[in-house]
Write a protein that binds this DNA or RNA. Sequence first.
DNA 1: CCTCATCATAACCGATGATTATGGAATCCT
DNA 2: AGGATTCCATAATCATCGGTTATGATGAGG
Lengths: 315, 315
Amino acid sequence: MIDAAGLRVMKAIADEGSFTSAANALGFTQPAISQMVRRLEQRTGTVLVERYGRQVRLTEAGQVLARHAVGVLAALDAAEEEITAIAGLRAGRVRLQAFPSSSATLVPRTLAILKARHPDITVTFTEAEPPESLAALRNGDCDVAVAFAYEGGDLGELEEDLSLLVTRRLMDDEVRLVVPGTHPHAGDAAASLADFSGEEWIAGCPRCRGHLLSLADTAGFRPNVAFETEDYVAQLGLVTAGLGVALVPDLILNAAKHDEVATLPLSPASRRQILAVTTPDLQRVPAVAAALDALCEAAGADPKATTAELVGAKA
Amino acid sequence: MIDAAGLRVMKAIADEGSFTSAANALGFTQPAISQMVRRLEQRTGTVLVERYGRQVRLTEAGQVLARHAVGVLAALDAAEEEITAIAGLRAGRVRLQAFPSSSATLVPRTLAILKARHPDITVTFTEAEPPESLAALRNGDCDVAVAFAYEGGDLGELEEDLSLLVTRRLMDDEVRLVVPGTHPHAGDAAASLADFSGEEWIAGCPRCRGHLLSLADTAGFRPNVAFETEDYVAQLGLVTAGLGVALVPDLILNAAKHDEVATLPLSPASRRQILAVTTPDLQRVPAVAAALDALCEAAGADPKATTAELVGAKA
DNA sequence: CCTCATCATAACCGATGATTATGGAATCCT
DNA sequence: AGGATTCCATAATCATCGGTTATGATGAGG
């Protein structure tokens, strides 16, 4: 019944004292004001403006509208300002969720870049394994999820989880075999998995464990998993203590101390992809876009390669 | 840029959780919501709604709008409620100005009727002589002026003051000659003004004095004005004391005690008209219309005879 | 008394904002 | 799985809103 335009007009009339100057103040022509008032009057069924001779003044009802106009228009301006602030990266929020082993390197770099480039947006970070982070994304509790997917083998593990989502390929993370420094193969240039079929194995998170089983399967054996821990520092500790061998991605090895162990590249090599995941709409939110760019930069990836398909995903 | 309709839609989406139920809640169809959101998004240049699969949820920017919507819509509703209250006589204001001799009878009756009929409107009353009350009316400081105009003679005295205003004829007020009870003509059935040319006269307000002079002029003499006071009680007192004679309208005589004087009808008779005056626009304001009706009723006039021309006014 | 300033009105026109009809896609159920 | 359902998007259509220019009526002032 009453809209913002009407209030703006009433307020202008109250401020300016005439239709003509109200029109000038609002950038309209005089007839626009004239019939705007008429429309308002027949909508509300009340007399809003008293035309006396050549001057106009607001009736009590008109003054009511003019009075409320101040607050309403201020609130509208405030809303608009907030919106443009979000659009202009002078405000806004990004909720990031990343898997544990990225928290040590990728995420801190990303946050630093974001903080430096857009100091006014607030970034929240939660550590979560890919299945949970993607669920949060789907659920609306997260804007960007950093996930990983092992190449080869049973690849499409995240396949169905990624439906309706867009991914951005951040980096490839090479998986290495970590053996005690005293191990007979410690000096080898590369490791063939079959040579370690007799070892005791240290497995990580469920999906990493699955990857290990998958690789071992193609190598023709079934690993003897003696320890399971999601804590990579603990895994390296166990290896250091000579209690077994483990598959550990480069991302971890670059961040954690591992002086007394040998890290052997696998042959054939095995990699996992680090992905930034979001939804098609959120991708267009400035703060989210900035976070994605920062992630790419922190990962050393080309930000131009916007959406990337999973390698090996069915076309 | 942002209007009330847009905010209403955003709030409905926030509350209902889907376009379809938001549409139902607002009484619209689903496509209306769909393209309303699209328009809002391209106007603000931001993503307001995140479409994930078949569900929708607001982005941060969308939530900003929904949040502000509460306050803005509440303010609009409040404004609308105030307007309808004024329209429904559950609120509102009438500023009445009336000439002094009406304050004693006409005005109190009017206020009583108004109070009984519309207890929620606030009526303010100021005593003012017609020239000032009409100026206030023109100036926007008054809604209804109660004025009087003497018939005959130099009638159009208020003529130019009444331009652009509407008048409502309340009653005719007969002017009588008041003489001491001991006066030789005290027992006469009527008084011919010429018979009193030798008396000392007591005159009232400037316009009443003008009327006296006018009547005396047509009667062929020039009155000896010995006293001038606007206080009618004082006039009656002076007459009672035998200090002179005076022309006093019925309106006063009906209200003031005048036991020891004689009140003689004039021959030829002379009357003044009591008028309610307002502006064409204010006339349509419910509270003002109610006040006019109450005035008519208090004066015993037919409220049907809405706008009345001054008797004798040039056609 | 004439001129100027102000509001009202008419004719016109584009954008807004609703409708119905239809399509596509995700979710749910069997 | 596959089919039904549900939800959003789009197209076509249309009335109304809200602006413009042109013009008229009229009160105010030199």
